[in-house]
């Protein structure tokens, strides 16, 4: 078969999609669904700008094929905020100035969602290890690290409905 019809839940909304088997997830999200948050940058699974969550696990949408989302949930940066209210991780990134150009930010934040889902109170080393595959060319990482640790504290204090 060279196309697959599938049900996939994108940011909480069930969708019925037919995708060519050779369509990558980033093409599907950006071109088919108009979700422009995830970025394609290196295209070789190194930079993390394309990070989205498949069943809450981080993947490189640049290389994962769209049909792999079959029967799964996909979460992107667009699904995080509740109306005008930022997700605590987004709020922490803004308050700590953890972004400049912002190109890496959707991926950074989605990777953080996955990290804190798995490990709500990570140590500094655990954050560094988990985030190793998300590259930022602007901030120098210190502010990102601060934002992630702060987000983890905020979420522990007031667990969000995720």
């Amino acid at each position: 078969m060279n196309a697959i019809t599938m049900t996939v839940t994108v940011n909480g909304e069930p969708r019925e999609l037919t995708v060519p088997t050779h369509e990558t997830l980033i093409e599907c999200l950006r071109e088919r669904l108009g979700l422009l948050g995830a970025k394609k940058s290196c295209d070789v699974q190194v930079c993390g700008a394309c990070t989205v969550l498949l069943d809450d696990r981080p993947v490189s949408a640049c290389t994962v094929l769209a049909f792999e989302a079959r029967g799964k949930t996909v979460r992107t940066i667009e699904g995080l905020a509740c109306g005008d209210e930022l997700h605590p991780i987004q709020a922490a990134f803004v308050e700590h100035g953890a972004l400049q150009c912002g190109f890496c930010t959707p991926g950074m934040i989605m990777a953080t969602v996955a990290l804190l889902g798995e490990n709500p109170s990570p140590s500094v080393d655990e954050v560094k290890h988990y985030m190793r595959g998300n590259v930022c060319r602007c901030t120098g990482y210190k502010r990102i690290l601060d934002a992630i640790l702060d987000a983890s504290r905020r979420m522990a204090a007031a667990p969000a409905p995720a």
Partner: peptide, 12 residues
């Protein structure tokens, strides 16, 4: 295994 590649490559 926890030190192979990055977390996204390890997931997939």
């Amino acid at each position: 295994e926890s030190d192979v590649a990055n977390v996204r490559v390890r997931e997939v």
